[in-house]
């Protein structure tokens, strides 16, 4: 089943004369349970694409359907409530609220509307266990390490059982150990909970955890790689190779 369907997505910034076409007509489908990575050199439009797909930004042209619902037909209030009930978000700089404890942060998306408190409590405990942050629930974000913060953000993204999780450079601010531990967590959530994840990254290691990786270049999809039955290390090699072809040097940012 297709969770996300994007058609002819264009995004143009600026006024007519200085207009810059960042996305040049992208078609994209994501199946339920997929773990899709988006890679590409700086300025290729990765983050813009993600923002447009998750309705934080409007496309200039084109349509996006999530779970059979056309985003362009919704008003901004509907969009907001759709985001709250159907999408999870993980950002590079965590975006936790400093004034809330870890637990309160995780439960934040449920702060409006009726939710069964008992059910929410169970789900929170379960996610905390899966992500290894049970002992941190009563702490405040400024008492946590980067990795712990990002795992809190992941739990917050998944508390509502979203149709799809959007992650924008989730490992960008983490050291390699914290990054790999978070990526393991995301991969296992993808596998055991069947969460659909879409992740923007410039890190080939992070991308190698995905089941499919899209490569963007100059606002268009350049190519895509499937992991298939390959081992992660093998997939990593493939990604490195494609990146080499794509942008010259592999690690640019």
């Amino acid at each position: 089943m297709e969770i996300l369907k994007g058609r002819k997505i264009k995004k143009i910034y600026g006024k007519k004369q200085s207009a810059q076409e960042v996305l040049k007509g992208i078609d994209l489908d994501v199946e339920a349970g997929e773990y899709v990575g988006i890679m590409g050199p700086s300025g290729s439009g990765k983050t813009t694409l993600l923002n447009v797909l998750c309705s934080i930004d409007n496309p200039t042209q084109g349509t996006i359907e999530i779970n059979g619902q056309m985003l362009q037909k919704m008003k901004s209030k509907q969009l907001a409530s759709f985001r709250r009930t159907e999408m999870g978000f993980i950002f590079q700089d965590y975006n936790l609220l400093d004034t809330l404890t870890v637990k309160e942060n995780i439960l934040l998306p449920l702060a409006v509307g009726k939710t069964n408190e008992k059910e929410a409590e169970n789900r929170c405990q379960e996610l905390a266990k899966q992500l290894g942050i049970v002992d941190l629930l009563k702490k405040y974000p400024n008492e946590l390490s980067g990795g712990q913060k990002q795992r809190t953000a992941a739990a917050r993204a998944l508390i509502i059982k979203p149709s799809i999780v959007f992650a924008d450079e989730p490992t960008g601010a983490l050291d390699s150990k914290a990054a790999s531990s978070l990526l393991e967590n995301l991969a296992s959530l993808n596998k055991t909970n069947g969460a659909t994840i879409m992740m923007v990254t410039h890190d080939p290691v992070a991308a190698s955890y995905c089941s499919r990786v899209l490569f963007l270049k100059d606002g268009q999809i350049y190519t895509q790689l499937y992991k298939g039955d390959k081992k992660r290390t093998q997939f990593f090699q493939d990604i490195m190779h494609t990146q080499g072809v794509l942008g010259g040097d592999g690690y640019e940012d």
């Binding site: 934080i56 901004s76 209030k77 907001a80 409530s81 759709f82 985001r83 709250r84 009930t85 999408m87 978000f89 950002f91 975006n95 936790l96 609220l97 400093d98 004034t99 934040l108 998306p109 702060a111 409006v112 917050r156």
Partner: peptide
């Protein structure tokens, strides 16, 4: 401001 941005992103409206 950042908190508001986060709240807006994860799906709370300005009115809420």
């Amino acid at each position: 401001r950042e908190s508001f941005k986060t709240l807006r992103k994860i799906g709370f409206t300005t009115d809420e």
